[in-house]
Amino acid sequence: MTDLSWKDFINALSLANMVLGIFSIFCSFSRKYHCASWMLLISFLLDMAIGTMARQLNISCRLGAELNDFAVFTSFGLASALLLGVEGPLNGFLAIIYVLTTSFRLCFYSSGVPFSYKGLPCPYASCVLASTSLLTKGNTFILCCMASLMILFMIDQSYYPRDEILESENWKKMVYMGGVIMLFFFPFSLTAFYCLMWSLSYIFFPDSLWGTATCHGL
């Protein structure tokens, strides 16, 4: 494939990621939170694949970057916030705060420090919410507690390693492949628990599990 064709393909994947987010939003409005959460887990895995392909092929363009930012905001901002529900004033207010936090997080996505992000990346916060929603069957109280915690992590401005799992150690590649396999072939509860443990390990043990070795490998 030519360079232009690869750019088109990656842009198409970013567009597909955005479509998943839009479908998740529609599912949330229809009170089908199970389906909405499932869409976000697929989007979480797809986002990692898009980033890996762009880096490996050394492809960068303004259109692709903007399209990917829109996809991230749609899926990991708007769609994730709607998992909280908008029936009550507290849920609606927290959903708005979550969307604003995601916007703030995207503005500081590049930390200026090699191999690191400033603030918890939005996909991991979204994965935590989607997995929690599936495991608790949409319990809004637990979701609001988790969302509040994710908001604090995203605005904390601590440094998190760039987890290039498809480009570093083999065990990290297996973690990703395990997520893909479980997503399509295992019960929903097991898949949600797997993704939740994966995300929490990145949040609470960023350097010991996902940091130094990845930087040296790259």
Rank of each mutant, 00 (worst) to 15 (best):
A125S: 15
V180I: 14
V128W: 02
S14T: 13
A147H: 10
N68Y: 05
M146K: 11
W38S: 13
I96K: 04
T136G: 01
M177V: 15
S131I: 08
A49Y: 03
K7N: 06
Y160N: 10
R162M: 08
L83I: 08
F205D: 00
F108K: 14
G217N: 12
L41M: 05
K7I: 06
H216Y: 15
L67F: 11
S28H: 05
S80Q: 01
G119Y: 07
L57W: 12
F115S: 09
T140G: 03
V180R: 01
I42F: 04
L63I: 02
F23Y: 11
W171S: 15
L200F: 09
E87I: 11
G64R: 05
T191H: 04
G211D: 03
L83V: 08
S131T: 07
R31T: 15
F29W: 06
S110I: 09
Y109W: 11
V128L: 07
Y160L: 09
I181L: 10
M182F: 15
L94I: 15
C61G: 01
S131V: 09
N17C: 09
L46Q: 01
W171M: 14
F44R: 03
A213G: 15
M150G: 06
C195L: 13
K173Q: 14
D3S: 11
H34L: 00
C122P: 06
F115Y: 10
G119P: 04
